[in-house]
Amino acid sequence: MTEKILVDKRLLNIDEFCAYLGIGKTKARELMTKVDNPFTVRLGNRLYANKIMLDKWIDSISGNKLKKVI
């Protein structure tokens, strides 16, 4: 049932963020409080991750960044 909730939700709270990425709360808070990340949404004192922006951010940092040799 948790998987269905994560698929349907646009904003993930800290627990859902941890489950989605498979990381602990300390690392999750570290990532979510970085000023330069595009996915954090602050509502009052609470932090949420915009799932669509999070997926785009993960895609942008994934893979080997090898220079093309000509």
Rank of each mutant, 00 (worst) to 15 (best):
I52D: 15
N13W: 03
L43C: 07
E30I: 00
T40M: 11
L47E: 03
L21T: 00
N64H: 13
F39C: 05
N37E: 12
D55T: 11
R46N: 05
M32W: 02
S60A: 13
P38Q: 10
C18L: 02
L21E: 02
L11W: 08
V35T: 12
T33I: 03
V41C: 09
D8K: 12
K67Q: 13
V69H: 05
V41Q: 13
K27Y: 06
R42F: 06
F39K: 05
G22P: 04
L47S: 03
L43K: 14
S60I: 05
E16M: 12
T2D: 10
L43M: 13
K65C: 05
L47Y: 12
K67L: 14
T2A: 13
G24D: 08
K67C: 09
D15C: 02
A28Q: 04
G44K: 11
Y48Q: 07
K67I: 13
E30S: 09
R46D: 03
M1V: 00
I14P: 00
W57L: 10
G63A: 12
R10I: 04
D8N: 13
L21K: 02
D36H: 11
Y48P: 01
I58V: 14
C18F: 01
K9F: 02
E16K: 07
I52H: 12
E16Q: 14
F39T: 02
F39L: 08
W57H: 14
A49I: 04
I61C: 07
N64D: 10
E3H: 11
N64L: 14
K51P: 04
G22I: 04
V7R: 15
S60P: 01
T33C: 06
K27G: 00
K56S: 12
K4G: 01
L6W: 08
M32Q: 06
I52G: 12
K65R: 14
K67G: 09
F39N: 04
V41W: 06
A49F: 07
T2Q: 12
A28P: 01
V41A: 08
N64G: 10
A28I: 05
A49E: 02
K65H: 14
E3D: 12
I70Y: 13
R42A: 10
I61Q: 11
I52Y: 14
L47R: 10
K51M: 11
E3F: 09
A19I: 02
D36P: 00
S62T: 14
G24E: 06
G24R: 05
L12S: 05
L12R: 07
K27D: 04
G44D: 06
V35F: 09
T26Q: 13
R10E: 15
